[in-house]
Amino acid sequence: MENMTLEQVASPLTEVSEKPSILYIDDEEDNLVVFKSAFRRHYNVHTAKSGEEGLEILKSLDASLVITDQRMPRMTGVQFLKNLPDEKDMIRMILTGYSDMESVIDAINTGQVYRYIAKPWDKEELKITLDNAIEAFQLRRKNKQLIHELQEANEVLEQKVEERTQQVNLQKEEIEKLLLNILPVEVANELKEKGAATPHYYESATVLFTDFIGFTKIAEGLSPNELVSELNACFLVFDSIIEKNNLEKIKTIGDSYMCAGGIPVPNKTHAVDAILAAIEIQDYMRRFNDEREAKGLVRWDLRIGIHTGPLVAGVVGSKKFAYDIWGDTVNIASRIESCGERGRVNISETTFEAVKEWFGCLYRGKVLAKNKGEVDMYFVETKLS
């Protein structure tokens, strides 16, 4: 032993550790000795004299195969196998004589026993049976491991799918938010459902234009960043005001802001809504300019023009969608704004007729409008109680 190398000492241990473990249970000591002697070279053979002792051993032994005698005191072989915990997946075999065959066959049919061994057993035949049983056990374990790995892989895949689905949903929400930033919700829904939005004709709608007076001169005194920042601050407030008053923003063109009422969903209050928004915008600009003057900064005076009439509204473009309005009503509203005065809300006669019961207005007479001739115009003075 002293002359053996470490490798020579270790290899038998390794070989033993690789042998499959078998638990053999029999209440007769001689049978245990014979079985262990016959098969210890091939398997790690563990023995027990009773079913109770076998159950205790299996608490710490991961056996490939358990073989039990059927006739034992206190607990038969079939009873022992019934008492095995569900998590124990070893192959189960039973030794039996002819007189016990009926109960053993029943155990086989119910899946409790892999195979029975008739007494007396032949060593060579039993060796083949044991090898087949252990191979079945190894295949069972391998399948179980593969199923476990597959379940884990499926869980990982499901998690990834769930994460990706969440990402797609978030992206979809962002896209929808962006879409709603440029299109009315009704038009956006139609576009998503049908792939196109149908232009609509409106018998009566109200168009509102704003424009900063002397904007070119204002721009000369500011850096590009300052100019855009100031303009954006104003337009953000305008956005909030028109949304509150049920108007739809159409677009901005330089320093000009355009919105409309009565679209895309027709209503009867669009002219009143537009004037309420216009008054609130001019009130905001007065406060805005008071603060600028207190700081010694140049004023941003605003004209507002409003006109009511028929128009067409719809989506233009196939890549960069834009909701827009067309018709002479739009052109007249632009001229009404151009003919207005700083800090005032200038309206056309058709708008006046629609709101005269709610607002006090000052008739300006016929005012010459570019390419439109003389047009009756009014300044909104007060809101009637």
Rank of each mutant, 00 (worst) to 15 (best):
T5K: 12
P12T: 12
V16P: 00
S21K: 12
I25S: 03
E28Q: 14
L32T: 01
K36A: 13
K36P: 01
A38N: 08
R41A: 12
Y43A: 12
Y43S: 07
N44C: 14
T47W: 00
A48H: 06
K49G: 15
E53T: 08
G54V: 08
A63V: 15
I67N: 08
R74F: 09
M75N: 06
M75Y: 03
G77T: 01
G77C: 01
V78C: 06
N83V: 05
L84V: 05
E87C: 03
K88L: 14
K88M: 12
D89G: 10
R92E: 08
R92L: 11
I94N: 00
T96W: 00
T96V: 01
V104L: 08
I105E: 00
Y116E: 06
P120Y: 04
D122H: 13
D122F: 08
K123C: 03
E124F: 06
E125A: 10
T129K: 14
T129P: 02
L130D: 04
I134M: 08
E135F: 07
R140F: 13
R140Q: 15
Q151P: 04
E152F: 07
Q159E: 15
E162V: 10
E163A: 15
E163R: 11
R164K: 06
I175F: 01
K177I: 02
K177Q: 09
I182T: 11
P184D: 12
N189T: 15
T206G: 01
L208G: 08
F212K: 05
F215I: 04
K217H: 09
I218T: 02
N225V: 09
L231P: 02
N232M: 07
F235L: 05
V237G: 09
F238H: 07
I241H: 14
N246G: 05
L247D: 02
K249C: 07
I250C: 12
K251H: 08
G254D: 11
D255P: 10
G262P: 13
H270V: 08
I275S: 01
L276Q: 15
I279P: 02
I281R: 05
D283P: 01
M285V: 07
F288D: 11
R292P: 05
R292Y: 07
A294E: 11
V298D: 08
R299Q: 12
R303I: 00
R303D: 03
H307E: 00
L311N: 11
G317F: 00
S318N: 15
K319F: 12
G327K: 13
T329F: 09
N331H: 11
R335V: 15
I336T: 07
I336N: 05
G340P: 03
V345M: 10
E349Y: 06
T350F: 13
T351G: 09
E353P: 00
V355A: 03
V367N: 04
V367M: 07
L368T: 14
K370S: 09
G373W: 05
V380N: 10
K383V: 09
